[in-house]
């Protein structure tokens, strides 16, 4: 478990970091995925730029009705953030469901999202929240919707030398309830399937439903058909079941030692129903 030789730089500013990245260095954040891969020699970057120590990427702020979370904010910071717990509880709840205490203390939202593990937890929430990601390179600064960011397993819209600067999520409107429900992988703690749900009620009816799915396939996605099936309804148990039954429709489900494709699809339906039910209960 000894990595190949590499250079390590811990720059003091983001600009300095971006210059090093432009020169071909690889970004290191919390190291929860990259370091194990390097120890197994599955990854062998020649130069690591440690973003984890950059103070200017570690923040949680509210501006103009949106919440901005710096890329190197740890899962533990997100989980325990009073602002997020109040204004975007789905993200805090999702962070609390990641791995274990040690991982949450070290791992960062930017690192996790950029790594794009198909079983990671955040992508479900980011899809449901219709989050945006601010990406930054030495000469670029752009915003990409979460829906467009995740391309495939471990593949994202990030250009080489670009990093995630911040994650942007909405302040949850009144009458919205949210929930993240997952089946834990017994070894890794990742999501075998994870479902993030947002439900907004207006005048007794369900006005908005957003469902983010992770773990089921190589790409996290929004279950739009299921969302539509529930919007405008009252939210009875049957209506929720019927909507949940649509979350895995037409999805090419992953299969491995711990869960077959068939079981994963079933879990997606079960957890969608539970997430929707819980979210609905929280609208009150």
């Amino acid at each position: 478990m000894i990595p190949q030789k590499f250079e390590y730089t811990a720059p003091k500013t983001l600009d300095e970091a971006l210059l090093l990245l432009a020169a071909g260095a690889k970004p290191l954040a919390g190291g929860m995925s990259l370091i194990p891969m390097m120890k197994l020699r599955l990854a062998a970057p020649e130069h690591l730029v440690d973003l984890g120590k950059l103070k200017d990427l570690n923040y949680i702020r509210e501006t103009d009705g949106t919440l901005h979370i710096g890329a190197t904010t740890t899962h533990a910071e997100i989980e325990s953030s009073p602002i997020l717990r109040k204004k975007c509880p789905l993200l805090a709840e999702t962070a609390a469901a990641i791995g274990d205490v040690q991982v949450r203390n070290m791992g960062t939202i930017g690192g996790s999202v950029a790594h794009a593990d198909p079983a990671a937890d955040y992508p479900a929430a980011l899809q449901a929240l219709e989050a945006k990601l601010a990406l930054k390179g030495a000469k670029s600064d752009r915003i990409v919707a979460a829906a467009d960011f995740f391309v495939d397993a471990f593949t994202t819209a990030l250009q080489p030398n670009e990093i995630i600067r911040e994650v942007i999520v909405p302040v949850e409107a009144a009458g919205t309830g949210t929930s993240y429900q997952k089946m834990f992988h017994p070894a890794s703690g990742f999501a075998i399937v994870g479902i993030a749900a947002r439900v907004r009620k207006k005048a007794g009816n369900i006005a908005l439903v957003r469902i983010g799915v992770t773990g089921l396939s190589n790409r996290p996605y929004r279950a739009a058909t299921a969302e539509k099936a529930l919007e405008g309804k009252l939210g009875s148990a049957t209506e929720i079941q019927n909507a949940a039954a649509l979350v895995a429709k037409g999805v090419d489900a992953n299969s491995d030692l711990h869960a077959s494709a068939e079981y994963r699809r079933h879990l997606a339906v079960v957890h969608a129903a539970r997430a929707l039910m819980t979210a609905l209960a929280r609208t009150a």
């Binding site: 017994p186 070894a187 030692l257």
Partner: peptide, 28 residues
Amino acid sequence: LWEQVVYDDNGQLVTGELMDYAVPRAHM
């Protein structure tokens, strides 16, 4: 409940890491 060593038909150890081989943690 959780642990199993799995070798595939070629004798490769499939559960060769703590990410795949589930030992009980305190919270379990």
